[in-house]
Amino acid sequence: MAPVISVSNLSKTYASGFRALKNVNLDIARGEILALLGPNGAGKTTFINIVCGIVKASEGTVLVSGHDNVTNFRAARKEIGLVPQELTTDAFETVWATVSFSRGLFGKPPNPQFIEKVLKDLSLWDKKDARIRTLSGGMKRRVLIAKALAHEPQILFLDEPTAGVDVELRKAMWDTVRRLRASGVTIILTTHYIDEAEEMADRIGVVNHGELILVEEKRELMRKLGKKQLVLQLHDTLDALPPALASHKLELAQAGTELIYTYDTQGERTGITALLKDLGEAGIRFKDLHTTQSSLEEIFVNLVKRPT
């Protein structure tokens, strides 16, 4: 299937001379949730703003459903909804007015039933006549989401939607994202919270210093870069590793009460059978064992620490 968004050789140099994006290439499939992870200043917002038409690209092209987002901006932008990183809302308008305004801006005929549904889904219905400045930060965030959804976009960008948001709203937000995804909407989000990406995304892109250093199916990413560890809790404390076990990648931990065996899930064989056999022969007994898998967070930290 043709990608819903296709970005090629995208670069951005700001007027200050700062190179915020360096030759980014990315295809986004219709209906997927793509999470962009990266430290502050990596270029995530710049990327989103270029795709949405708010910032001009210095080089490269962006196609949205095959439409160039500069030469055919109308067709390209129609499909996109954007929830910006900053809480930028009007102050004196009512919730209803500002959401209806957004729908009009995108050229859609008025549809009060649809806006009612959007507001209800976001628990904003009882605030529909409230002036925006009287709302809390969390409520304003919901208003921004409602505005982005008002024109029934097929692609939704969420730029750090849960930064500084309370647990309840975070949950509500992810429910909304799941619902949208179920209806076929493509979602691109940036987040600081790796657990969020891990829970929500189908694919994960890692951005650092303006480069897209990796894009991978989440499962594939975990499998490729994820190391697994087998932790053995020993029956008797060990002072040192017996020489007979030196050939295994073992580590003695917890003051000699634990043995940790690190292996690659990708490898042909894990070496666990051989290890257990050698342990038995060395007379080492254990009371318990469990395995752990590295989280995205560890993977991520390793990636961005890697010298470029």
Partner: peptide
């Protein structure tokens, strides 16, 4: 000034 211009700039309007 408030930043709400983002919406105008990202809308399909000339």
């Amino acid at each position: 000034f408030t930043g709400t211009i983002f919406e105008i700039l990202s809308a399909p309007i000339s």
